[in-house]
Nucleic acid binder design. Structure first.
Lengths: 188, 188
DNA sequence: AGGGACATGTAATTAGTTACATGATTGT
DNA sequence: ACAATCATGTAACTAATTACATGTCCCT
């Protein structure tokens, strides 16, 4: 999904400045499944404004720099609907954690232990942060996203906590496994 | 993780051609957490070869185009280890599915039903494909990746199947929820 | 005095994707 | 006859990120 549509999505939830839109990708709900930086948000907002998909109001603030508050127009709302009407393209997932874990046998065991502990901490923090969210007032779609996301984080945490120790123990014992051959190379 | 390191990772599992490396990202284990296209794999392999991290052997084949088979050198092996020794950067996840689901209230209900059904099918197919993999012969790290991945897919599938119908029913009834205000905008 | 939050914006760079170019073989 | 699989590679393009530029206020 391009940054323009992402901005329309954030703005659908209420008017916001570029800075606030960035926060939606950093700390808000979108942080779990989309991302965008200032360098792409500001130009996108400029284009969106010139095309009439958003309205921009300059706001003077006390003891803070000026703010440009953007608001979705009816045309912008239609553009958002059109964008979500097309079948979604497949998820893009890039995880260095999984890549490193995949080659765990090449690392010193304390390094693997640290890797898993940091991942466990990440899951715990994320779950705690998401738990603070009041679900009763948000629309259905958002509730399902929240529930599905929570499930993923919670089951990942449970799995790692359950298997961590035995995994680390198995790494200590030089593997009795069949060494690599071409027969088990590209397993799914 | 850059494509060069990704190639070293695939090659660590056994020698392969550029075409075969691509398949590891399409159908193989890496497909779940990394991606790379021909346009980045072939130049990466060229650089890796000129830097002595891989060896290249030209293979003539009957009734098939020639093949260039790449093999990890000791230097390449060291480079892979160095790469996985640095603390992994955070996962990058971009999901149009979640984005669309987030705004489910803007879509016709049959469209939402289709979205969920296709997601359920995707999870089922993925789980089936992963189940075919023989775990007994693969190293520990790969086994943990497989287990963690399976857990994520399975719990996502379970969650969607459990909540799908009630979710769709709730969408049919015009929401009794508090309409949007600034107070529930950027919930985590 | 130094860092972090607030606030906007541009320019340089990068790292990739998509499309193109070529061509045999096998299956439908 | 057409699509898919096998096989390698380049060029054009795009869409983003990172770094830079500027400035105030607040907290420690």
């Amino acid at each position: 999904m391009d940054v323009r549509t992402l901005c329309l999505g954030v703005l659908y939830q209420g008017e916001a400045s570029g800075y606030e839109i960035k926060k939606a990708f950093e700390e808000g709900a979108f942080s779990h499944f989309q991302d965008a930086s200032f360098g792409s948000i500001y130009p996108a907002l400029g284009r969106l404004s010139s095309e009439g998909l958003v309205d921009c109001t300059q706001m003077a603030q006390e003891k803070r720099p000026d703010k440009k508050v953007y608001k979705l127009t009816d045309k912008g709302n239609d553009a958002l609907i059109t964008s979500i009407l097309v079948p979604p393209s497949p998820d893009k997932y890039a995880s260095d954690f999984f890549f490193v874990l995949y080659f765990a046998e090449l690392l010193p065991i304390p390094q693997v232990a640290l890797l898993l502990d940091q991942r466990i901490t990440f899951y715990k923090n994320t779950i705690e942060r998401m738990s603070e969210c009041d679900l009763s007032t948000i629309p259905e779609g958002r509730q399902l996203c929240h529930g599905l996301g929570m499930t993923v984080y919670q089951s990942s945490l449970d799995y790692l906590e359950k298997h961590k120790d035995s995994f680390l123990n198995k790494l200590k014992i030089p593997s009795q496994n069949t060494p690599f051959t071409n027969s088990n190379r590209h397993a799914s």
